[in-house]
Simulated scan of single mutants.
Amino acid sequence: MDVNIKSIHFDATEKLQDFIIKKINRLARHNESISNAEVTLKVVKPETSMNKEAGIKISVPQQDDIFASKVANSFEEAVDLSIEALERQLEKIKGRK
């Protein structure tokens, strides 16, 4: 699976990128046909807490893209919340088949 990470107005550390890739690869357990994932990280309102946003879009062949975006105190937490939302969406799709 291809994972494309975009960090807007900052440079994501290698540790953060490794964390994201590990979490994205776990999504393959829910649907093995996921072809790629696009992760967008950005800081919203830098002077406040709860200002790290992670948006994740995954492409599944023969279906619409699935997207989740969450805001949290850290990028790791925002990624975790987005992954949980994507897992729920993938479970719904699996239930419809």
Rank of each mutant, 00 (worst) to 15 (best):
T13M: 05
V79L: 01
I34T: 03
S49C: 07
A72E: 06
K6D: 12
F67M: 08
R96C: 08
Q63V: 10
G95F: 05
N73G: 06
P61F: 10
I5Q: 05
E53F: 06
K45Y: 12
S35A: 12
D65N: 15
E76N: 06
I5T: 09
E91I: 12
L41H: 06
M50E: 14
V43G: 07
I56N: 01
K22C: 00
L27Y: 01
S74F: 07
I24W: 01
A85E: 13
A68L: 09
E32D: 15
D18R: 01
K92A: 09
Q63P: 03
H9M: 14
H9N: 15
Q89L: 05
I21Y: 00
A37C: 09
D80S: 01
K92L: 09
S74A: 07
I21E: 02
R26C: 01
T40D: 13
A78P: 05
V43N: 10
L16Y: 02
L16M: 05
Q63W: 11
E32R: 15
I83S: 00
K92C: 02
A37N: 03
R88F: 07
E77R: 04
D65C: 13
D2V: 09
D65Y: 07
S35K: 15
N51Q: 09
H30P: 04
K45E: 14
S69V: 13
I83T: 01
A72V: 02
V60I: 15
S69W: 06
A72S: 12
K42S: 14
M1F: 08
N4K: 14
P46D: 11
K70W: 02
S82N: 02
S7Y: 09
L16H: 04
I5K: 04
N36V: 06
S69E: 15
S49R: 13
V71S: 04
V79W: 00
A54V: 03
Q63F: 14
S59N: 13
K70L: 05
L81R: 03
I56Q: 00
L90V: 08
L90R: 04
K94E: 06
S82K: 01
D64E: 14
S82Y: 02
K23E: 04
A68I: 04
D2E: 15
K92I: 10
H9Y: 13
N51I: 07
K52E: 08
V43L: 13
M50Y: 09
A85I: 01
F10W: 12
E84L: 03
A68Q: 05
S59Y: 05
K52T: 08
F75H: 06
V39Q: 05
Q63T: 14
K52N: 11
N51D: 07
A12K: 05
I58T: 06
S82R: 00
E87H: 03
K45N: 15
P61K: 06
R26L: 03
E53S: 12
I93H: 13
P61H: 10
Q63A: 15
S49V: 12
L86A: 09
Q63N: 15
N51W: 04
S59W: 03
K57P: 03
R26Y: 00
I5G: 02
L90H: 06
E53I: 11
A85G: 08
T13A: 04
R88P: 02
G95C: 05
E38W: 07
D80L: 01
E47H: 15
I93N: 11
N73L: 08
S49P: 09
S7F: 03
I21T: 04
N73Y: 05
E91Q: 11
R26D: 04
P61E: 08
N36P: 03
L16T: 02
A72M: 04
D65L: 10
